[in-house]
């Protein structure tokens, strides 16, 4: 019991420490809230240029949703979680290496997963806050009418997806301590996921072999499920399938992620990479 309390406090301390450090860089912290709008704009303009307006009959005919902006925005929001998992979690150990604090953190009497859980907890709060902020601004500004009836299921889908993504984040974090060229692999994984997830288009437009890859990514089901619930997109899967597959993906990804992390931790301590930066 004493140990459980210790670990829980450690997880929260990890989270609080991250907030404190982030808030010491105020401009950068607040930039994160607004920068995404800038990245989103090209998507919107591109869409408008192609369609001649915000609404598209073609999009409506293949997805059931006419509003290109609302459609793209949800895909985009979901990708925010991917980026947090890859960069915030993946880079966190890198940052500790760079500060010089990694040895002291790793010499603490807590198992490694406590540290991982702390990072995940913080990432969730951090990204969640930014998401909510953006969702409110965008939906008010563009007067998007979301359906609110399925909001509970939306949260479940997002939660399952996010935890699944943390499997990837942990994997990347593990690579940083075990491999010198770790970032090549993490870049590749991140890019692959961004390209293959149907952010701004329905699954149906993907070539068949790419669609196969996208069917093992949590982001695919996250985007589809959330868009279906909030906008009524026709996705060709029922919700139970989506939830079930997300759960399976979560288990597989987290297992692989933690496995690689533990392996890399051991490998790094054998080879002596852990504290090099």
């Amino acid at each position: 019991m004493k140990r459980v309390i210790h670990y829980l406090r450690a997880i929260n301390a990890e989270n609080m420490k991250e907030w404190r450090i982030e808030l010491k860089y105020k401009p950068d912290f607040f930039r994160q809230f607004f920068a995404p709008f800038v990245y989103l704009l090209p998507y919107f303009l591109y869409g408008v240029a192609l369609l001649g307006g915000r609404f598209s009959e073609h999009l409506q005919s293949i997805t059931g949703v006419a509003d290109m902006i609302a459609y793209t925005f949800i895909g985009y929001l979901i990708m925010g979680f991917l980026n947090t998992a890859c960069w915030a979690m993946g880079w966190s150990l890198r940052k500790e290496q760079w500060y010089g604090t990694l040895d002291t953190v790793f010499a603490a009497p807590v198992p490694r997963w406590v540290y991982v859980a702390g990072m995940a907890f913080h990432s969730t709060l951090h990204q969640g806050l930014i998401m909510v902020f953006q969702a409110v601004i965008i939906s008010v500004f563009f007067a998007i009418a979301f359906k609110t009836t399925g909001i509970g299921v939306v949260l479940v889908i997002v939660a399952l997806m996010v935890v699944g993504l943390y499997g990837l984040g942990v994997l990347i974090a593990g690579l940083t301590i075990g491999l010198k060229q770790w970032w090549v692999i993490s870049e590749a994984l991140n890019t692959l996921m961004v390209v293959v997830t149907p952010i701004a288009y329905p699954l149906a437009v993907l070539p068949v072999f790419i669609r196969k890859i996208s069917l093992v990514l949590p982001t695919t089901y996250g985007v589809m499920g959330v868009r279906h619930l909030l906008l009524g997109e026709q996705i060709g899967y029922d919700l139970t399938t989506i939830l079930f597959r997300l759960a399976v993906i979560l288990i597989v990804w987290v297992t692989i992620g933690m496995g690689v992390f533990m392996m890399m931790d051991r490998y790094g301590r054998k080879k002596g990479f852990v504290s090099l930066y």
């Binding site: 210790h6 406090r9 450690a10 301390a13 990890e14 609080m16 002291t104 953190v105 603490a108 807590v110």
Partner: peptide
């Protein structure tokens, strides 16, 4: 504070 929590 951080290290106190981490170190139990």
């Amino acid at each position: 504070n951080y290290f106190a929590a981490l170190y139990g």
